[in-house]
């Protein structure tokens, strides 16, 4: 395996892990902004993390047993 593919695999694993625990995925957000709203300036990583966290906890869903 080349170094390039190892890094790709690690990045994929990290993305999977983040989605599973429900953590915000900044890279995916950037991709979305580039594709859907090319004219708008995306939030910084810090601002995105804050916005997602506030959003998640201000509309709390249920908690499972």
């Amino acid at each position: 395996m080349t170094r390039r593919t190892i890094r790709d695999h690690l990045a994929t694993a990290a993305r999977v892990a983040r989605t599973i625990v429900g953590a915000p995925d900044y890279d995916r957000y950037l991709t979305h902004m580039r594709r859907r709203h090319p004219g708008r300036r995306p939030l910084t990583r810090e601002a995105f993390a804050r916005a997602r966290m506030d959003d998640r906890y201000n509309r709390p869903g249920a908690r499972c047993c």
Binding site: R15, V16, T19, I20, G22, R63, C64
Partner: peptide
């Protein structure tokens, strides 16, 4: 990935 997310959310 959704499967993992859903399972982590329902299992307690």
């Amino acid at each position: 990935i959704v499967f993992g997310h859903h399972f982590a959310a329902i299992a307690g």
